[in-house]
Nucleic acid binder design. Structure first.
Lengths: 164, 164
DNA sequence: GTGCCTGCAAACTTTTTGCAGTGCG
DNA sequence: CGCACTGCAAAAAGTTTGCAGGCAC
């Protein structure tokens, strides 16, 4: 790890002006847009929830036939994306270390299926606790992480246990 | 540390009632009450919240002057306690792997101080979501894990950041 | 006395770092 | 063309397992 900057990101936009100024992180010059970075960022953007490193790595391999993508590159790229506020690290109660696209999608909770292990974003915040609230004992709340567990629709439809 | 849940299940958790008082889980046949196990269980019982392995290990060393306690024993004992429902594994959003006494104290949420990193039990469940509820999309909720973050009273009283 | 436990160290797993070659800008 | 980026492999950090001896029962 090292840089903290803002990378141009993928090329989703047609008329991508410059690397705007309202950027969250100060841009660091010298960052390069490589195929691997674009692929990894795209994978995160397309996911319905946070992905594990192995998942990201394998999807990257499939997306880049012929060209290898080292696991180290996956780790380095993810750290870079997190530093640039383009991705977010999520550690679940199950112990999974996952990453998800960040930004436009604000704070939200997660749901992990106990049957298949997959994780989905809950596009809402289920905790109606105001930040800044003081709990009995004097604990000042500034943020929270909530993960629901249960069964997803897919697994509910398939009585047969199939652990990914 | 990632992967999925722990529970390597070295040996099958047994069912028996050895030291059965109000014990939730029956003891395993042939289980022996050793000094190390008693110390580790006592440490968990006395804690105001979940502890990390290093914390448990160091407290065990201090509690047992003269006699060493191997880190492997700490791991093995904690797994054993979890299998017997005497302790519970808690993985926080920060990535901390911690253990806390289980049983009499039912489900509760946690609070982790962003300044000192300590974790406290919140003796209540802040999520008013009924288990069995179905979320939009068909996700059936069976459980949840909630961790609040912020500043604890101690750190609030000491403006100076002291990351221990 | 039996065999469950323990400490120590090696084995594993997951993540990070060092290098030299590669290709983006 | 220079230097950031990448893949590979070694290094670190965290957790588990194999053993021989110790101790609870």
């Amino acid at each position: 790890m090292s840089s903290s900057a803002k990378i141009p990101a993928r090329r989703p936009a047609k008329t991508a002006s410059k690397t705007a100024s309202k950027a969250v992180a100060p841009a660091k010059l010298g960052l390069r847009q490589t195929r691997q970075r674009g692929v990894i960022a795209a994978i995160l953007e397309a996911a319905p929830g946070p992905l594990t490193i192995p998942e990201i790595h394998q999807q990257a391999l499939k997306a880049q036939p012929g060209s290898n993508v080292g696991i180290a590159t996956v780790y380095r790229t993810l750290n870079l994306l997190v530093e640039n506020r383009r991705a977010q690290l999520v550690i679940l109660p199950s112990g999974d270390t996952r990453y998800e696209a960040a930004g436009h999608k604000g704070h939200h909770d997660h749901f992990q299926c106990k049957t298949c292990g997959k994780v989905f974003d809950i596009d809402a915040c289920l905790l109606g606790l105001a930040h800044g609230a003081i709990l009995p004992g004097g604990y000042r709340v500034e943020g929270h992480e909530l993960t629901l567990t249960g069964q997803c629709p897919d697994c509910a439809a398939k009585p047969v246990k199939r652990m990914r």
